[in-house]
Nucleic acid binder design. Structure first.
Lengths: 152, 152
DNA sequence: ACACAACTATTGTACTATACAACTATTATG
DNA sequence: CATAATAGTTGTATAGTACAATAGTTGTGT
């Protein structure tokens, strides 16, 4: 089980398990620094880029149960970062949109996250970052497709 | 905010947020398939490779609170996958070691995880996998160093 | 040698993220 | 129009984590 003799699949499998653990650590420290959490960040980002979305559309986009989205939305509405109105044409649906304050919160968190990534990969070459990014995207897409297939 | 014009840092920052979300999804689906969870996997792996370790050593290794390790260990002892003895020289400490059954459970999970990674990156070129692995390792080490600095 | 400090692990409590199930309100369909 | 489907909310459960309080053990200074 010597690292030098592991094939790339085995090594990757292990490194990913470690990475997953690191990400949970990051979440904890994130919370301590009172930044908005990842789910809020992704929701605000989606609303900022796409405009109005319903809770169901967010759930589909993130492959989350709508009940989870419903709970993630609540504090964002409370904080005044997203506006929540019923759709007039179909009164079951919500029309969620980001507010001015929401955009500000998003930008602040974005800046802080960028700062973090500057610390983590700022000294990589541009080529290394691009390579890693493109492979990570492929992996993300694969995992997404797999999870989508699992929960139809 | 057009993807083609984002610099690599911004794009990476976002892709990582998405990736973190995917990993949580993976954890859920993992649980459904009744595999052992990541923490158990990493603990068994560590004991398998290092031999006897104490709870504190595991906590240090994973940058987790010892109370968390204590709780993660309990079901593994219960399942008969790890043996737990008090150290005779220092009776405060535990001597944790993997059992035969533990090795079997570890190998089964390892095989199943390898299968998953084969699905995810099996069609990448060997070079792509190695490149991704080596960059991921660098990132992991960086994040680890950062987390270590935060909680001394 | 003994009191007190330091250390290792466990247990109590709390919080986040998540899913599933039960429910409400609304819309679509046979 | 009655029933089925859909969107969202709320109740309940579970995992993973941290921090605080505690118990038992070991180390240290006078």
């Amino acid at each position: 089980m010597d690292q030098a003799h592991m094939d790339s699949l085995e090594a990757l499998e292990r490194e990913m398990a470690i990475f997953a653990r690191r990400l949970e650590g990051a979440r904890q420290s994130w919370r301590k620094h009172r930044e908005i959490d990842r789910s809020a960040y992704l929701i605000l980002l989606a609303l900022h880029e796409e405009g109005e979305l319903t809770a169901g559309q967010l759930a589909t986009r993130f492959l989350l149960d709508i009940s989870t989205i419903s709970r993630q939305i609540a504090p964002l509405v409370e904080a005044g970062w997203i506006a929540k109105e019923r759709d007039e044409d179909d009164k079951r649906q919500l029309r969620l949109s980001i507010t001015e304050a929401g955009v500000e919160a998003l930008m602040a968190t974005r800046a802080s996250r960028l700062e973090l990534y500057r610390e983590l990969v700022g000294d990589w070459t541009e080529d290394e970052r691009r390579t890693f990014l493109s492979l990570l995207r492929r992996l993300n897409d694969r995992i997404r497709a797999r999870q989508q297939a699992e929960r139809p």
